[in-house]
Design a protein around this nucleic acid. Structure first.
Ligand SMILES: [Zn+2]
Ligand SMILES: [Zn+2]
Ligand SMILES: [Zn+2]
Ligand SMILES: [Zn+2]
Lengths: 133, 133
DNA sequence: CTTTCTAATGTTATATTATTACATAACGTT
DNA sequence: AACGTTATGTAATAATATAACATTAGAAAG
């Protein structure tokens, strides 16, 4: 257990939802998650949304805002919970979390004209993936 | 009429929706727009969504994905339709379109590890605005 | 001017995404 | 055990968005 990273013990529902999102190769939508965890005893949307909210908060998963879908973090988790970047293929809808030190440094240090500094950002790139080009 | 910028004549519904969004100081949600244009004869969600879709497409307005809300472009329109950046105050929900040549240059030229180049991006920064700090 | 094609509109119904409200249970602390 | 806090369960409903199909308005061709 790294000292750099706070541990978060997942509760039952959080673990169930996380396991599903984590093993999915594509972003999952809330109601698709709900459907897939009903055999595990989760019955209502709210149970899913509560788990998702918490998982997002602790950085285990991210929400792809333009798609209303959730993907597990593949960037050493929590550290980038508040600084996310994704590439999204507009044809096959494949989503990849971008891990670029340069990009995150640039954006983390970005100040607007008012000198406003931000505590969080989300960036979504759109284009065609290798396969779809 | 500038030669640099394609003109898009708005249709009746598009103009009605645009006028409302354009004079609003804050991002508007689709159903709030619907409510406010009913006196102009627009009766159904779909009429609003169709107008919004088209207005986004031609760059007259942008969608703030994390808020499901729409704001008029304040960046010389169409030119940045596919390269948008916003700052969002997490307290008062004030949204400002960021106009930074450096930022847009950096992101437009950004290539990921696979050398994938993107045709479009949307960036949302979160923090506290001057007033809320 | 009339035909034809296309884009926009109107309308109803429905799908999808997300939250409110309130009751109950589990858990850690004292 | 008593208390406060966090997580759960459950039902109802709100908010966001699209499907399907009929009609109308405009542009372009003949
Ligand atoms: Zn991540
Ligand atoms: Zn693709
Ligand atoms: Zn703009
Ligand atoms: Zn503010």
């Amino acid at each position: 257990m790294s000292k750099m990273q706070k541990e978060h013990t997942l509760t039952k529902n959080q673990q169930i939802v996380f396991d599903l999102v984590e093993k999915s190769s594509e972003p999952l939508k809330a109601y698709s998650i709900l459907f897939n965890v009903q055999k595990k005893g989760i019955k209502a949307p709210l149970q899913v949304y509560r788990a998702l909210d918490r998982l997002v908060e602790i950085g285990k998963i991210h929400k792809i805002e333009s798609r209303n879908a959730f993907i597990a973090c593949h960037n050493s988790s929590c550290q980038v919970a508040k600084a996310t970047a994704f590439s999204i293929c507009e044809i096959c809808e494949k989503v990849t979390e971008i891990s670029s030190a340069g990009l995150s440094k640039y954006l983390t240090n970005f100040k607007d004209k008012d000198g406003m500094k931000y505590s969080k950002y989300n960036l979504e790139f759109f284009g065609l993936c290798k396969k779809c080009r």
